[in-house]
Computed example of a mutant assay.
Amino acid sequence: MSKRTLRGVALLAMLTLACSGGPLLPKGSPEEQLARARYYLDDGDGTKALEAYRLLSQTLQGTEHEEESRLGMARAHRESGDYFAAVQEYEGFQRRFPRSPLVGDAVLEIAETYVEQRAKPEYDDDWNEKAIRQYEDFLAGYPRHPRLEEGRAGLLNARNHAALKELKNGITYIKLRRFRAARFYFDIVIDRWAGTDVVPEAHYESGRTFELQKNWEEAASHYRTLAEEYPDSPFAEKARERLARMEESS
């Protein structure tokens, strides 16, 4: 078969794909093409979404739709579970379009990508630490972003995750009756992870370690702090009960 014939066959194949909506020449306006890619993404089909966005990032290059197509590639990688490629695409998007109104979304979604890779709280977890820093960067850099509350909620979730790890460490040391070591971790929760949902329990467990060592004054201090500063916590009622028993026996 001659080269001329081969070129003709290739052209015919391209035209056939174009007519059938194949991947080489997507059908419809840019808006319709992007809508189709978003549909795949929303439907959880990361493979089809990635194929669609990858093609669109080429065909829409230099147009007003290029930014959405590039960000869509990152989201499709994330949906497919290829987190490394997703972060690379998000970071590449920030470098390529530093003034885009979508840059804040890229920063936020990198944090969410880190969260999706993190381990259970009882294990060392660099991904959660990265997520915390990324959420903080988002909140500091984009204080008027429409997804600000999403970022705040994500940061609190990541901080709770980190605090829970320290709390579990402390409880493990209580079981070993190593009370000073346990309080070391509870103090990390109280000081470093102040404002998290885990702080009331850390106060309660700290009080319990002092009580087990018959250090009633320090135990009462933690119980009072818990009851006064976190009155709605389920641990506050337990603290009040322990305080009452301590006062009765004194």
Rank of each mutant, 00 (worst) to 15 (best):
G8S: 06
G8Q: 05
G8T: 05
G8C: 03
V9P: 00
V9R: 14
V9H: 14
A10M: 13
A10Y: 08
A10I: 15
L11C: 08
L11Y: 10
L11H: 09
L11P: 04
L12E: 13
L12Q: 13
L12M: 14
L12S: 14
L12R: 10
A13N: 11
M14A: 13
M14C: 09
L15E: 07
L15V: 04
L15S: 05
T16F: 14
L17I: 05
L17T: 13
L17E: 14
L17G: 15
L17N: 12
A18K: 01
A18W: 07
A18T: 13
S20W: 04
S20C: 09
S20P: 00
S20Q: 11
S20A: 14
G21A: 11
G21E: 06
G21V: 04
G21N: 02
G21L: 02
G22I: 08
G22L: 08
P23F: 14
P23V: 13
P23H: 11
L24Y: 13
L24D: 03
L24G: 04
L24R: 09
L25M: 14
L25A: 15
L25W: 11
L25Y: 08
L25V: 15
L25G: 01
P26K: 04
P26D: 06
P26W: 01
P26S: 01
P26C: 01
K27E: 11
K27M: 08
K27L: 05
K27F: 02
G28D: 07
G28C: 00
G28V: 07
G28R: 03
S29M: 07
S29Y: 06
S29D: 08
S29R: 09
S29P: 04
S29Q: 09
S29N: 05
P30V: 01
P30R: 06
E31F: 05
E31S: 09
E31W: 02
E32I: 02
E32M: 06
E32N: 11
Q33G: 05
Q33I: 03
Q33P: 00
A35W: 07
R36K: 15
R36C: 02
R36V: 03
A37R: 10
A37P: 02
R38D: 14
R38S: 04
Y39P: 00
Y39H: 09
Y40Q: 03
Y40N: 01
L41V: 06
L41D: 03
L41T: 10
D42C: 03
D42T: 05
D43S: 15
D43N: 15
G44Y: 03
G44D: 01
G44L: 01
D45M: 01
D45N: 00
D45E: 00
D45S: 00
G46K: 00
G46P: 10
G46N: 00
G46Q: 10
G46T: 07
T47Y: 02
T47M: 01
K48G: 09
K48M: 13
K48F: 08
K48D: 07
K48W: 10
K48L: 15
A49T: 02
A49G: 05
L50I: 03
L50Q: 13
L50E: 07
L50C: 07
L50W: 08
L50P: 07
E51Q: 10
E51L: 06
E51W: 00
E51S: 07
E51M: 12
E51T: 10
E51H: 04
E51D: 02
A52K: 00
A52W: 05
A52Y: 02
A52I: 01
Y53L: 10
R54K: 12
R54I: 00
R54V: 05
L55N: 10
L55K: 14
L55V: 12
L55A: 04
L55C: 00
